[in-house]
């Protein structure tokens, strides 16, 4: 690991100022991803600004039902919070499906949203990678891409976003609170992560020095009827091969509304708008669910070794929505 400086921030403004002033500075929260990447030489910061003493560590439910989550709330605390466990089961389930107990005790909300891809070429500094080294090329298309994207990828990059939590938040239309050198702003989570296009190195719409301070989850009337389902290579402690976050509102056997997001199949948490549009007003049957998934996956660009994700995610969608439909009827 390269030598680096470490400072602990006492307030958000100073943290933002410190990182803004140094192009090689990074924020450090739980460290569960950044420190790993520093060991691999993928991240090479000169300065780390520790955020863990900042006061963004509470979960508050506002009068209109909006749940505000501080960026420093640990994944395990968030999953266990009554408002989340009871009111937003898909979020609680997504959190608990991620990592291990030890990692969840360290990992924070902001860090989870900003974790980097598990693509093997991104993590191997001896290999080209357009994301790590713009313009160097992408060996993944021809090489090892079994875990990589079938949706939203580009010629330059087919990396996937590894988060479970963010998939649930995408389904919930979460908003991200950001503090930056020019003041505070809020952005929809859907606009936090960027698709790779020709610039996979630009993973988010955050500017250098901008700090995620929290998340706001707006109320969703049927959020209690929601679930997160994750396929992985062993029963626990593994990243997703494919996952689905879903909430379903059914009346008289007809889908009144639905929220659907996919994980591990795209460079960002993938909100499945096409599937949602295809499903509203349709009977809540396995056939409709399958057709909806197929509508979303019409845009899929599967490769040699990840094509199985198309039927896999379809099956998970059908499975999850059928289950929710059963619960609501």
């Amino acid at each position: 690991m390269r030598p680096f400086q470490f400072v602990r921030a006492d307030d958000a403004a100073t943290a933002v100022q410190t990182v803004t002033a140094n192009p090689k500075a990074k924020f450090l929260a739980g460290g569960t991803n950044l420190v790993d990447l520093m060991k691999l030489g993928v991240e090479r910061p000169d300065l780390l600004v520790d955020l863990t003493r900042l006061p963004f560590d509470s979960v508050d439910v506002e009068a209109d039902g909006t749940v505000r989550i501080g960026t420093n709330v640990r994944n395990s605390d968030l999953a266990a919070h009554p408002a989340v466990r009871n009111g937003l089961p898909l979020l609680s389930q997504a959190l608990l499906a991620g990592a291990s107990g030890q990692l969840r005790n360290m990992a924070t909300v902001g860090g989870n949203l900003l974790q980097r891809t598990r693509c093997v070429y991104f993590q191997d500094v001896t290999k080209p990678c357009n994301k790590r080294q713009p313009g160097s090329g992408c060996p993944a298309r021809q090489g090892d891409h079994r875990n990589l994207a079938i949706l939203g990828a580009s010629e330059a990059c087919i990396a996937t976003h590894p988060s479970d939590m963010a998939v649930a938040l995408a389904a919930l239309d979460a908003r991200v609170a950001v503090s930056g050198p020019d003041g505070d702003r809020e952005t929809p989570l859907a606009e936090l992560h960027a698709l790779p296009g020709e610039h996979p190195e630009q993973e988010t719409t955050l500017r250098h020095g901008e700090l995620i301070t929290g998340i706001a989850v707006p109320p969703l009337a049927y959020a209690e009827r929601s679930a997160y389902r994750k396929v992985r290579d062993r029963a626990s402690y593994a990243f997703a091969v494919a996952s689905v976050a879903a909430a379903l509102d059914v009346e008289d056997g007809v889908v009144r509304d639905v929220r659907l997001a996919f994980g591990a199949v795209a460079p960002k948490p993938w909100r499945a708008h096409a599937a949602e549009d295809a499903l509203r007003g349709r009977p809540a049957t396995a056939a409709s669910f399958r057709a909806a998934a197929e509508a979303e996956l019409a845009a899929a660009e599967p490769l040699r070794d990840n094509a199985f994700k198309v039927p896999l995610i379809t099956n998970v969608v059908v499975r999850t929505l059928s289950d929710l439909a059963g619960e609501t009827s």
Binding site: A97, A227, V231, R232, A235, S236, D323
Partner: peptide, 16 residues
């Protein structure tokens, strides 16, 4: 559910 395929990943309640 812990003893089904997928275990705590919550992928099935027996279907499939």
């Amino acid at each position: 559910i812990r003893l089904l395929p997928g275990g705590v990943s919550n992928t099935t309640h027996g279907e499939g």
